[in-house]
Design a protein around this nucleic acid. Structure first.
Lengths: 257, 257
DNA sequence: CGATCGTTTGAGTTTGATCAAATGTGGTGG
DNA sequence: CCACCACATTTGATCAAACTCAAACGATCG
């Protein structure tokens, strides 16, 4: 990881540009080479998790801020009787638990959906960021506010939209998010979910997910096979799901580049 | 408002203690007299909104951070066809739009449910806080993370719980939040909502809200009349709604006082 | 004292859940 | 390479929670 700094000579603007968090924060602001290097150097102890493993558990007192480097993870909460609600998906560049930095204790869990590489930034590093790099600090804060905006939109999804609309909306959201990190090829992106997990995301039974998917397929809007989702008609899908990308807050800052 | 500093001589620990934001942040940390004074002095331009008025509208570029001083407000989002989802309730001490400070543009609206007093803290004041008062800054950040935790729990509510459970859970949440700001008297608190608004919160039709309420009433759990909610049996209500207060993150810090 | 808004009740419908079984599919060990 | 196992997907049939539509009833207010 530290070897990336070797790229400095070749092209100063590329320091840490392959680091997923640096890439994400660059959507919000232009990070200085020093800031980028600080993030890269602070990312230590990369660990692997297998599909299904918990990365952070409810009740944990964190020992640092975790960051998805590679793979696909999800936040979730369980009710006592076993019902599960998925609260968010985490893709490369997303932070797991900046919450715990201030809230002290996790009120939900995070698990890996596929094999996932997770980096840890120590609590002291984050503290140091907030002292030395106000611009970087704002970028991190921005990342948490973005998470919140997505969370709010999920409330709308669950509260107001029908099964079709929910599913269409989710697929649109992930299309935009995956494209923003360069993970859409053609019209496809990797979506390593079972239909049951989709149901736990959308508040639907697995049976109903299956039928809804079949309908979306038969209408030529998407296909979903082998953990890959392909969007055949994005505008139609957006319209069906009442999707408007503004809540993802790509835009203003990014355009300025 | 500035006259509150006159209390300094009498009891130094009480500077700004009646200021709702100071009171809220004190749940997280012990603010110094200087920090408390800074918050009180920064709170300018208090304005009134009537029930139904928008306080902040979707698309707004903010001109400062707004703060509920008195009253009851709510975040909401509309779909193009008129469906409305309420995303959060705001009680005295809650911040409206710290989001916009970094996200630049509101992706949802905020309206007053009753007559509501709103204070504004200028953007430059907040910036000054982040430079001079790291402890206060952390407290503000904590407040936004708490909002997010509540938002996540609402996802669980909408995605996994039945109509009864949803309603029970919401009433429990507000009971705890209102009690934390000293607004529970006996077992009652002011909840100035129509049944339609309750429905737009819980993802239910107004008719179904009415019937669910009747059931909760007839089971002796709550009554809801004239904008006042009374909880007759909190433990039973918590059990019915699978409510666990840990996500509200009262606790650790507060206990230390 | 209408007018307006909110609540309540009734009847019929729909969406999505549940239960159960059949059909893929991918991986593992013999 | 096949047999088998564990899981995931698919289909069918039935059921229930919650919605819609419509109308009546109650408050509150100029």
């Amino acid at each position: 990881m530290a070897s990336q700094t070797g790229a400095l000579q070749a092209d100063p603007s590329s320091v840490g540009s392959r680091h997923p968090l640096v890439r994400k924060l660059s959507n919000f602001t232009v990070l200085s080479a020093e800031e980028r290097e600080a993030v890269v150097n602070a990312t230590a102890r990369i660990s692997d998790f297998n599909a299904g493993d918990d990365i952070v558990e409810r009740g944990d007192l964190t020992g640092g801020v975790r960051l998805v480097i590679e793979g696909f993870a999800y936040r979730y909460k369980l009710l006592e009787d076993g019902r599960r609600q998925i609260l968010a998906y985490l893709v490369p560049g997303d932070l797991c638990d900046l919450h715990v930095f201030l809230l002290k204790r996790m009120d939900h869990s995070i698990a890996a959906m596929t094999r996932t590489k997770v980096g840890i930034i120590s609590q002291s590093s984050v503290l140091a960021f907030t002292e030395k790099y106000p611009n970087l600090t704002r970028a991190l804060w921005w990342a948490t506010l973005l998470d919140e905006a997505i969370t709010r939109e999920w409330i709308v999804n669950l509260g107001q939209r029908t099964a079709y609309e929910r599913m269409a909306h989710l697929f649109c959201e992930l299309f935009y998010r995956m494209r923003a990190i360069g993970q859409v090829e053609g019209n496809s992106y990797s979506l390593p979910l079972t239909q049951t997990a989709l149901g736990d995301t959308l508040g639907l039974s697995n049976v109903h997910v299956n039928r809804t998917l079949q309908d979306l397929r038969s209408q030529g809007l998407v296909s979903f096979k082998g953990g890959v989702l392909t969007v055949h008609d994005l505008p139609a899908l957006e319209q069906l799901g009442f999707f408007s990308a503004d809540y993802l807050h790509f835009g203003a800052e990014t355009q300025r580049k």
